[in-house]
Every structure is written in C-alpha cells, then in structure tokens.
Nucleic acid binder design. Structure first.
Lengths: 334, 334
DNA sequence: CCGTGACGTGCAAGCGCTTGCGCCCGACGA
DNA sequence: TCGTCGGGCGCAAGCGCTTGCACGTCACGG
C-alpha cells in the first residue's frame, strides 16, 4: 500500500510538501502541486488516517453509545446522527451497552481507547461509572434522552408540556377521568410526563386521582396489566394516556381483549409515534418525539464541545409534535 | 494523558515489558507484572489503540455501509451487527451512503482511510465504483442483502422459495387469481421474488397472468397506484402479494380507500414483517426476514475473511420465516 | 552591489505503540 | 570451574503521518 513517502519520492519532493498539498496547510507552487497530485493518482495513494491521528491527536471520529433494546427509535436516532456527523467530516463509532451499566463502562472505555474525539451517550439507568470515566479522561460528551445534570451538555425532549397537551386534548373532548400509564420509576422522563399530565388536569380544574395514575414500567406487559386494573375500577377512566410507545401497545392489547372500542368506549392517546401509525385501527393520537432533530442536535452540541472544551454546558429541550388522529375521538373514524 | 512510557518509568521497566504484560504476548515474572499493573492503575493509563493500530496495521474495527432510507430494518440489522462485532472485540464504524453510488464511494473511501479491517456493505444500485475501490485496495468485504456475484462473500435472504410459500399459501385457500406487486426493476431480489411467485402458480397448475404482475417500484405510493390499477381490472385478483414492506403499506391503503375488506374481499400477504404487526387490523400474513441472523452472519463471514484472505468466497442464503396471521383468510378475524 | 523580505521547500523530531534481536544472569551438567 | 541453556527483559527501529524551524532563491529598493 502506497505511503506518503512513495508519493514524495515519485513526485521528487519531501513528504512535508505532499502533506501540505493534501491538506492545503501551506502554499505550494502550482507546478509542485500538480506533480504531487499525479503521483498520488499514479500510486493509488490513500491517506492513512490512523497515522494522521497519531500525529495530530485527533481522529475525526465520534462515538455513539446507545442501547437498541431500550429505544424503538434506535434506527432513526442513528441515521440522523450519522448524517450530522458525516456532514462535519466525522465518522461514527457505534456501540451498544445493552442497557447494562457495567458493559456501558466497557464500551465507553473501548471508544476512548480508539480515541474518539467525543461521544454522544444515551446513559443507562446507572451511568455513574461511565460518566466518572469520561470526566476523568476529559472526553467531550453529550447526553441523550435521559437528562441528568445541567452541568453537562445534554439534549432531550420537552416532556412536561407535551404530555400536558395530550391530556389536555382529551379533557377538551369532555373527559374528566383521564388515566395515565407512567414509565419506569426513577427516570426523569417518567416524572416529567406525570407532572405534565397533572398540570393539564389542574389547569382545567379536574381532580388528580391517584387511582388513575398507574405504573406501566415502560414495558408492554406491565402496561397491559395496568390497564386491566384500571378497567376494573368502580369508576373506570373514559380516557387513557400511555407514557410511551411500548406501553401504548400494552394498553391497546388490554383494550382489545376487554372488547372495548377506541375511541367509542375509551379514548386514548400516547407519547411516541409509530412508524406505521396510519395503518393502525384506530389511528393513534400521539405526541411524536423528533428523534432526527434530537440526534442532530446532540451531534452539533458535541461538535461545539470538541471545538471549545471550556464553553458553558448546554441543555437543549426539543419540543415534540402533537399528532391528532382518531383515537382521541376527534374524527369518529376508528 | 498517561502513556506507556509513563507506566514503564513508574514501574521501573521498559515499555516493551509494559506492552507484553498488557497484551500477554510474552511471559513476564509475576512480580514484574504486579509492578506494571499497579503503575497502570496509579497513572490511569489507557492504551491508545490508534498508536497500536499504526504499529500493527490492524485496527480491530469494521465498517458497516448501510442506507437507512432503503432499509426499514436498519435498526435491527445494525444492532445485531454491532453485537456480533463487539463479541469479537471489534468496533463498528457506521456510514450511510444514502443509496447514492457516488457518495457510496466516498464513504467507502473514508472507511478505508480509517483502515477498518474489513467492511460489510449493502451495495447501492450501482456499486461498481465502490467495489472496484475495495478490490484494488484488497479490503475484506462482505455484501449484504443484494447479492451480486458468487465470487464474493455475501449474505442475503432466500427470496424465491419464500415468496413461493406466500403465494402458495394463498392458492391453497382457493384463490386462483393472485396478484404480485413487484419491487424495483433490476434488483436481484425483485427477480427472485417474482420467480418464486410464478413457481407457486405453476406448481399448482394456475395460469401466470402478466396482467396480475404489477410493479410497485419498492415504494409505497407506486404500490398504492398499482393496486388501484389491479382493482380496476375486468377480472380483478382475489388475493395480492406485496413484494416488500413499503409496498404492503401502499397496498393496504389502496384497499382501504376502495372500501375492500381484508381478507373478506381480498386476501393479502406480504414480504417483510412489521414490528407491530399484531396490532394491525387485519393482522398481516408475512414472510419475515431474520435480519438479526443476516447481520450476524455477515459479520461472521467478514471475520472469517479477515482471518483468511485467501479462503474461497461464501454465499449464504438465510431462510425467512412464514408467519401466518389473519390477512390471508386463515382465521376469520380481521 | 548588498540587505531584506517573501515565498517555496526540506529536515527531522516526534505521536504512542509493537516486536525482532540480543544481553544478562542464574541453574545445571560435565 | 566452565560452558550451555533458558527465562526475563531492554534496546531501538519502525508504523505513516504532521509541523516547527530553517534554509535557499529571487526580486526589489537603497
């Protein structure tokens, strides 16, 4: 494989000159440049980024640490991140910590060994070890989705107002007993979405009934059970909001099993959209997180952090979009 | 940032010894090893893979070249690939050529500049330039999904028999006029699926009616139009097979718009499963490609190729699974 | 005719590892 | 006592780039 020295020899110049014409880092006489470029072509020379990185201490790569299992939008997030990174000349190293804090540390370490210039991290439930590692080694990092600490760069969804919009919309349809299936305890998103739900109720003078707030643990099966429990109430809800995608599925299953029509018997709405939501029956009214924008923002934040390690930290909240379809009772389709 | 030299100094040994204890590449006295390891801990030393790669000419990374747009299973493929790569100690570099042959060459080049040890490539429609580049630079490569050439390592789905199973299943329900919505002309998968469809008809003594083979161009909108055209026929089909996921959506839309019940008025089946297929109404009967297995196989093939560049090429066809649900008329749900 | 810039290049010292060679030393057999 | 052998390590030469420093050369003004 041709090296810069081969090119230099063939062009009759020094490797320094080859380097400079390739990188445009110092003026070179037109004639010399031509000589170099044709030597490059003749030798099929391809620059070796590895050697370059060793010399410059920069790799033009960034890491993305993201658990596929815990994120149904994995692909969307990734694709947008890759595009944003590529636009800046960066290549993405992907690792999946499988939502395991120990392994999270392992993969973060591996990424750092590869000397990525920075990383975008969707933290696990207990990211302390990984974060400590990143801090110690001063790796530029931006947190994704689960916001942790205003002292860090991070980007996530505006959960509270978005959930309020969902619940509010249902209330505006005349529902007074609106249930919420909440996510995993301890997650910031769970708290924020619950608060948003309550905000909407309070704003409309409706009672916040603890009975109507059930935990779905962010999982389909748990949510299904939670809805069954809701339906068994003396005074069951007439509308239900699901706190995320997986729990919406559980909700729908329980409803179908109970033979309840949506939105006829029970109106529903959910956090997170489905890629094929238009084909569902009923068509679900949802709040759709703009994952592409989230990922893009994260990459840009990281780029900024790499460029200026001393800038103050940034937290960015992306506002999701309310997509009103049938399941809320808006158009009596379904 | 601590280097191997720092560790060596602190431990009172040479960098060679540090290297050997870290890599286990030559016997070291227990006492010396301890000295080194505690120096490693004390300095928070982390190996620099970049330098290592320069010295060894191996990076323990592999590239994955995959267009998100053209693959609804992007996430699934990726996740499985990452897991398989990680299991072998490799890190995945992800690039998205956006289905553009020129850009495909660009990203392949970028990956090679990073000196990935090999790459898994889901080729674009015109991958010649990229493939030529890979050949010239002798980059170990395995092709994914779109099989091209038995002289290369490649893995894809067994399309023909699988489509035959789909059409055959419909025929076994008594349908005699079974339409097929085919994908983009020129793709190997399109041809294979069409042939499978015909195989099934022929095997059952049914007529292969060219009128019933319409092109959906692998896209939702085109498929929708194609189905409308099918329904306008004098003797319209009583069953339809969609050649892929996107076209199935178009098919379903056209059917709904026409007010036709599935499977009551028209029975349908499709290539490719939907993640939430159970929630559709009707529940779609499909052939599901095992993307995880495909990606895992691709990574393993690549690993083998890296290990032995001179082994004969391997083509692997993964057999997809027929998932019979309601849309074919099996259980009169819908 | 000489000093002075500006311009165009080359030199060579790293960047942080790996690894072939070879040295030292203690044990052992003759 | 000496030669030999094997176990443990160190030396130092790279791997393929980048880049600070310095050296011509040439044009120009004094």
């Amino acid at each position: 494989m041709a090296t810069m020295a081969d090119v230099a020899r063939m062009a009759g110049v020094s490797t320094a000159t080859v380097s400079h014409v390739l990188n445009g880092t110092r003026p070179v006489r037109a004639r010399t440049r031509e000589l170099v470029l044709s030597a490059v072509a003749a030798t099929h020379y391809t620059p070796n980024t590895v050697a370059r990185s060793l010399a410059t201490a920069r790799t033009t790569t960034m890491g993305l640490v993201l658990s596929a299992i815990s994120n149904p939008y994995f692909g969307e997030l990734l694709s947008a991140a890759e595009t944003a990174a590529a636009a800046a000349g960066y290549t993405l190293l992907l690792v999946d910590p499988h939502e395991d804090p120990d392994y999270e540390l392992t993969v973060v370490t591996r990424l750092h060994n590869h000397r990525v210039d920075g990383m975008v991290l969707a933290p696990s439930a207990h990211p302390d070890a990984a974060l400590a590692y990143l801090d110690r080694h001063e790796v530029p990092t931006v947190l994704l989705d689960r916001l942790i600490d205003p002292e860090r760069d991070q980007v996530g969804t505006e959960n509270r107002e978005a959930t309020a919009a969902l619940t509010g919309h249902l209330a505006d349809h005349g529902h007074t007993r609106i249930a919420l299936i909440t996510g995993l305890d301890g997650l910031a998103t769970t708290v924020e979405r619950r608060d948003g739900h309550r905000d909407a109720l309070v704003a409309r003078g409706l009672r916040v009934d603890p009975e109507l707030e059930v935990s779905g643990s962010s999982a389909t099966a748990t949510a299904e059970a939670a809805v069954r429990q809701l339906l068994a109430l003396d005074d069951p809800p007439t509308a239900i909001v699901a706190g995320n995608n997986s729990m919406a599925i559980g909700m729908l299953k329980a409803l179908r099993e109970a033979g309840l029509a949506v939105p006829g018997d029970v109106a529903v709405a959910a956090f997170d959209d489905f890629p094929w939501a238009d084909l569902f029956s009923p068509r679900l009214t949802v709040v759709a997180q703009p994952f592409g924008e989230i990922a893009t923002t994260a990459v840009h934040l990281l780029l900024a952090r790499i460029a200026d390690p001393d800038a103050p930290p940034t937290t960015r909240r992306i506002v999701p979009e309310l997509r009103i379809r049938d399941s809320c009772g808006c158009s009596p389709g379904g």
